[in-house]
Amino acid sequence: MTDEARIAELEKQFDDYVEADNKAEPKDWMPEKYRKTLIRQISQHAHSEIIGMQPEGNWLTRAPSLKRKAILLAKVQDEAGHGLYLYSAAETLGRSRDQLEDDLHQGKAKYSSIFNYPTLTWADVGAIGWLVDSAAILNQIPLCRCSYGPYARAMIRICKEESFHQRQGYEIMLVLNRGTDAQKQMAQDALNRWWWPSVQMFGPPDEASPNSSHTMKWRIKRFSNDELRQRFIDQAVPQADVLGLKIPDPDLKWNDDRQAYDFGAPDWDEFFAVVKGKGPMNKARLDHKVRVWDDGGWAREAAMAHAEKESARRASQKSAA
């Protein structure tokens, strides 16, 4: 058998194996494309968690009560933790953490485009928790059954921990809407600005989504972008009603036949412009990340230098004894 034929056979075996809902583990043989797809998706997911610390971190020192400050600290901290779980999963595929971060710094890796919008008021912290985290969870729950073991395990942990993120965001909105007119306005304004970017978090419409069929077959993805988007809208509309907020979509209407909401088309031109780097905060987010990494270089080197000196000292003590 030629090498090519052998690889084709292995790939076929692998495809059947994962399609039957079996798990692949780190050192198992896997098609190169499966590995690359996973590295791309997991690291993109990790980068989103890390870049996502910035918009909310923007309010850490200005949280309006000590309770909110504690909650926000815990939430931003979780995002850092989730980024690390995911980097750890991605590393099992053979790309190191430094390489993964470097891909981000070089602009070669993406992160969720939603974080390229600014957090202008305190209500944005509420809107992010409510909408962005709800959308994220809808994307993430199916990933708990993803075919790649380490990714699935990381997602199980993340989903469990993130359930409070959504709730705290919704609670912020709830309290604002029970408050003064200025607070209500703040909440409505935040919803107006975060609604469409949240709807776009599920990615382009199915007919324009090129990577989907492979990732479905490999059990990395289980639902299409449009299916998840519909689920998001169907759950957000009654939630907005309870808040007394108006979703900024004039075409939003219950469809009795479909037993689902019809909704307007997001501005996909804007979406692709932001993905390509033209959003209000793309440059600021990446510059921030790169600056922090560069500024911290001397400290990381110092820790390594100290560790090496220590082990040299221990070795020489041993040989002297």
């Binding site: 610390m53 850490l60 504690a70 600290l73 815990a74 931003v76 901290q77 850092a80 922090v292 990381r300």
Partner: peptide
Amino acid sequence: SEWVRNSPTIELDIAFANIALDHV
């Protein structure tokens, strides 16, 4: 809190957040 998202490593972001939380 100012260090969270600004530390030399992400692990240190978490450590600073932990200590900040203790103080809050």
